[in-house]
Design a protein around this nucleic acid. Sequence first.
DNA 1: GTCAGTTATCTTTTT
DNA 2: GATAACTGAC
Length: 711
Amino acid sequence: MDIKSLNSKQQEAVLDVGGPMLVFAGAGSGKTRVLTYKIAHLIESSGLPPEHILAVTFTNKAAQEMKMRIHELVDSNLKGITIGTFHSIGAMILRRQISKIGWTSDFTIYDQTDAKALVKSIIKDLNLDLKMYDPKSTLIKISSSKNSMQSPKEFLSLASNVHEEKIGQIYAQYEKQLKQNNSVDFDDLLVKPLVIFDKYPEILEFYREKFQYVLVDEYQDTNKPQFTFIYQLTKIKQDIFVVGDDDQSIYGWRGADITNILNFKNSYMNAKIVKLEQNYRSTKNILEAAWSVVSKNTNRADKKLWTDNDFGDKIDLIQAYNEKDEAHRIIEHISNIKRKNDVEYSKFLILYRTNAQSRIIEDTLIKNGILYTIIGGVKFYDRKEVKDLLAYMRFIVNPNDQISFDRIINFPARGIGKTTVNKIYDNTDSNNILLSLDNLKNIKIGKKQLLAIENFSILIKSYSERSKKDSPLILIKDLLSELKLKEYYLNQGTQESLDRWANIEECISGISDYENNTSNPTLGGYLEEVSLFTDIDSWNDDSDKVTMMTIHSSKGLEFDYVYIAGLEDGLFPIVRLFEDEDVEEERRLFYVALTRAQIAAVLSYANSRRKFGGEPIPTSQSRFIREIPENLINSSTSIKKSLSFNKQRLDSNIISDCPIKVGQIVMHKIFGKGKVVETEGSAGNTKITIMFFNNTRKKLIYKYANLKIME
DNA sequence: GTCAGTTATCTTTTT
DNA sequence: GATAACTGAC
């Protein structure tokens, strides 16, 4: 291990062993190197056995990479070292310990879709209106309550109106049913280990003994349960090493608490703090632009990145007529650079704030014959056909899992509809649904249905028996042919059904991969891996493709050329009801986006954009663009070209008079009714500020807005 | 109970 | 412009 390749600050972070340390590691400052060298140093020089080390990363991919890199540094066997995400480590602990609190180790991990389905069925059971209590926002409330470690009881005691009270009841029922289903959600993976630690001090003691040195990456994005988990493990010996950058804290909406890093010393009073401020990634111009924006935030630790790298090119700004034009111009820009500098497509990254923006860019790439990969968006394991297949596996492993049972009892169709399923539920008092299927003789169910249920029960039982000895791959292949799913999809003959079958096949090859890489493969093991898996974990940058993803997914990555699309107020930064509230986090997000770039960054925005495929809505350039000093931005030909293009389009659409006056009530196709509070300018270009009755305030341009005067 | 065709709603961001 | 939810004919 060659420690001299590190700069003095990095060396300090690596060599100073024992006691709490916080490393502020700015973008591109060699954070990953410090972490891997630190772990290597702990093993090699301090003689700490790998099995006593716990390292927490943000993605599974980062965990794998870290393991590989440490391997390159040390000779000793790394077997026994624990590196993973908070969620995977939580799952690992629960598999061993959850029987203490009433689940079995075969528990199922529910993703958002499953959790939403459960919430929805509870809302229906409680006879509540699905419009007033929509499953999605209810789940968000439950989740944030869980993440602040609040029980349903505590939630209920704080409820100040009927609506909140009902949500509390839904929450209570949700927890109860999760247990009945022998299932946990993502939040439980963090919270349940803490519950166990609390109830069984000897278990906490066991893990304190096991994880003697704890290292955490991306510490700025830890939430309350994650902090508590780490604190519980380390508060006695205080051997904790955390790395992060408050300027890159972008998960506040998920409960991440930036004060965990800003006030690290409150919890670990003797903490040493090291700041890594030299950036090795980006040009001076990119860094300066990123700094000029993020330094507008008030809630941040004092520090500034610097670099020995060149100034580099100025930042290009693309102004487009609409989202289609934007996609076109971005791709044109990519082609120009590729031609000029003779670089591969894999050097390019296109970033956006929302997944919905990817489609139009995707279409344009296809039209131009450019290969691309998209990270995120509609997840592979969230597709209906894949979820259906997984539901079979889950139910085979965990016959309490009602959500999976609901998915598969009538897929493929076997004549068991809603009515029959409800009769089954009404008739049973067992949580084991498979067992309850054996006791249906006394209730009124049609002969045909009864036979179908019997066959279903036999099917599941036989696979559940086989799963104890057969390999998952053989099991699933047999199951698929028994269900005749290939015929089911291929006989439909549509492109969609062909795609669906292709996805099933991809799933099969995934199972095969899993078997080849696991020493003792089981169905349950496969399901666990899959439930904690994300797109980025399987991504590799070897192929010559343009990469696209949201800014959130891009954290920790670097590319030569980075495009940030959709820089419009309302889209990036996205603003909620009344502005400013979360602009600081949006600004950090913009900072993350810019600092991904090594050689050049390109910003783009459109003058109008369609939302949900509707009418184009006029947009205005993001405040973030204005926060960058002009001398760092290239105001080159692309703007002029774009303006003339605009003009052509607009000339054919001249409106000489604007009849809208302040105080009028107007109707907008998307936003509904609202009151005009201000007008600026004249004729077709009049900007009209409207306070809509749904509490959004919008500034619209008359000739685009298509407003109807109501009174 | 099933299936095809229609309609409502949706968009932050993810482990 | 995609997907879940609903409707009506068989």
